[in-house]
Design a protein around this nucleic acid. Structure first.
Lengths: 240, 240, 240, 240
DNA sequence: AATGAATGAGCCTTCATTCAT
DNA sequence: GATGAATGAAGGCTCATTCAT
């Protein structure tokens, strides 16, 4: 009740609160919600066990706060829907940028790393917090990316077809996040190792652009009436 | 089923064991290993808590037994590496079959449904059981599928490139399993709804074949110079 | 109810019963009553868990049977009260024999070893079985030994004084049984090692005889009226 | 008592910890480590089951704490090795004091009573805690007492012989602790009844001194020939 | 604003026992 | 006469939470 009021008034409190959030993000990402213990979080944050109760109410509220406050800024990055910088780029540039930024977010270390790992867990075992996250962060980006895909394909595709293509692109990125444990065991190496990252990014981009361009060309060839894209542009990828 | 036959004298025994396995599969899939309680499993199986200790040893061993005994037969289905039926098929047929069978396994209800959900959890939060599963089930199928992809591409690709393509195909299927919760919230409908399944299967197949054929054509044409794809060869697969 | 009747009629049953007793003696001696599990006993005896219920009723009854049936024959050894062989020996010979036999019983391996270890536990943590054991085995031997001590001291000592002396002798033997764990840690060697046994036996004998003879001499010197033992006999020990 | 003084701000804390220790000592002494339940201990201490986890870690740590914190002060009593008061006393006075103090410790009621009962159990069924106890408490006192015995005997005895004599003395005291259950059943009275304690103390002292003096006299006289004791020197100690 | 202590519910496991063959 | 399966009662321990300061 008086919670939000109190943490604004005192800077010392805010420090504890921030440390608590950082520690919770790290431990929730590493262990999951249930396996994480408030004691371990408080130990990492150099805080008392009761601090969580004081600042957030209980463990659930702390988790919700972590998801809310450590989420990457929805508007700001180059991949963001409203970004001034990206709005005027050609679609293929936007497409490449999206993949690069998405991959970077999946692989970077630090607090955002925690967020993406927590998100991976949320997808397997959703909590109430997922609803808000989908609406606030995922849906806008997903729709923005679908528009990019539509720019690439040109007209002649249903919304469902566009969505499926966008999913096919995104899935290739998330795969390495969600199935990292299996890939490590299959290949005995980190799928996100920095030296492989560039190769991975290029593969996903070329693979996806090849598919999209080819499907678009086929569609327009088969339906001459609605065709807009010339066959020449179906060349899958120009070396950067 | 064939289990109770081996213990003709004590059908009640096998029944309890089987019920325990079924209940455990369901609850492990629903709640995860840690959140699942042996009490709930036993309640579902109409058995005493000590029955788990008697039949399996402890909760960990029960979990391992669930993963082992509810796993889909690695050899037997049409997508299996050793299948007589598939060995002589043309690669594109094998490719289409693999996607169809894989999707079917991800979406079907029943014990296999539980297995794939548990696997999804294992990938996020691996336990000791994952090592064996990777070696026994995942690795053989993954290698078989990579050979199919290589048949499609023809020579000229490194093992790493083949693996990346195979991953890109598989990832599109797993996406709907791992991110089902998000997709439901995005689109407000079940991504695996039976009426959409056929569309989903066709999309993943066409998208992937388009990409693979196009990349292969580009590689073979551009080989002498620097990877340049002639427009004609980009028509990868004609819709069935 | 029909229990004792059944085990007489079938030899196969008696074999199981005997194996059960032997295994129980070993494990009760090693682990104590509570720490011993019926499963381990049955495993050692190559019997089913329900066999104990069948042959003895329950774990308590099995324990009582072990104490009863593995007890050393109360009459038979040279130290036994009723032994023909010992009745006519001079008291010092009987005294030396008692110590030797008692020590031997404490140290020997085999089933009797189990009995003495169980007895040691009974003294620390008595069960209902101890009452019978005291009356049947300990009391007769204790009284017989007190008479030996009285023969050594001659008259002039109260029953209480004789009992205290007998206790002082017996205690020196039991000490190495009851405090073996401490002695092992103090001296880093087995107090009952065969090569030390002879030295131990001689020490206890000489120490005790020196005390008894000296006390007797002092008593008789101090009370000339009741003296019977000549001072000469107070020499503590003649080398054997 | 002095514990709560150190935590002036939270007297309730120390109180719970102390109550827990007292209750644990009592119940461990009465039932043994395994048979004692944390629930019963907490009930006696008017504390919650989790209090043991909080204050000590687990049942094992609580047991170790009981052994450590209820142990009699190794230095401080008159029988202690470093005691100023005893260092200059004649050996026979020290010897008598040792027996008196040892007996008193064995028989007194209260927390020390629990400690000696627990020690008796440790000797029968050692736990890891015994190692430390032997090194910290038993070994120093045992060595101090051996030196007293050597002062009584004079030179001419091996370390092993001295140790055996010391053991013979100590064993007479421990006997009434370790075999109390049997003695009660044999004599139908408490061996440590206060009215008998003085008699018991005098007996052990006189018995042991008689033996040691007599053996010493025999050794010194017989040294050149073969250990023969002159009658005169056998009068070891005149009754007080 | 923050802390150390205390709480009670719930978890997995073990055990002696009994039942149905 | 003997067995494998099943039972229910505790037992030790962990955890999120709350209380009194």
């Amino acid at each position: 009740m008086s919670r939000s009021a109190t943490h604004e008034s005192a800077p010392a409190t805010a420090a504890t609160r921030t440390q608590l959030l950082a520690a919770a993000a790290e431990i929730f990402a590493e262990r999951g919600f249930r396996n994480a213990t408030v004691r371990e979080i408080c130990r990492h944050a150099n805080a008392n066990v009761a601090a969580i109760s004081y600042h957030f109410g209980d463990k659930n509220a702390l988790y919700a706060a972590v998801l809310r406050e450590t989420a990457p800024a929805p508007a700001g990055g180059p991949h963001a829907p409203d970004s001034q910088a990206t709005r005027t780029l050609p679609p293929e540039r936007k497409f490449r940028l999206f993949i690069r930024e998405f991959l970077k977010r999946m692989t970077e270390k630090g607090p955002n790393c925690h967020h993406s790992r927590i998100m991976a867990r949320e997808m397997i075992e959703p909590t109430q917090a997922l609803d808000d996250l989908v609406n606030e962060f995922i849906r806008p980006q997903h729709q923005w990316f679908q528009e990019v895909v539509r720019e690439l394909t040109g007209p002649g595709f249903t919304a469902e077809e566009i969505r499926l293509m966008a999913n096919s692109v995104v899935s290739q990125i998330l795969f390495y996040k969600h199935c990292g444990a299996v890939i490590e065991r299959l290949q005995h190496r980190d799928p996100f190792a920095p030296e492989r990252l560039h190769q991975l990014e290029r593969h996903i981009t070329e693979f996806s652009l090849a598919a999209i361009h080819t499907l678009a060309a086929a569609r327009h060839t088969a339906k001459p009436t609605r065709r807009r894209t010339p066959p020449k542009s179906t060349q899958p990828s120009t070396p950067r």
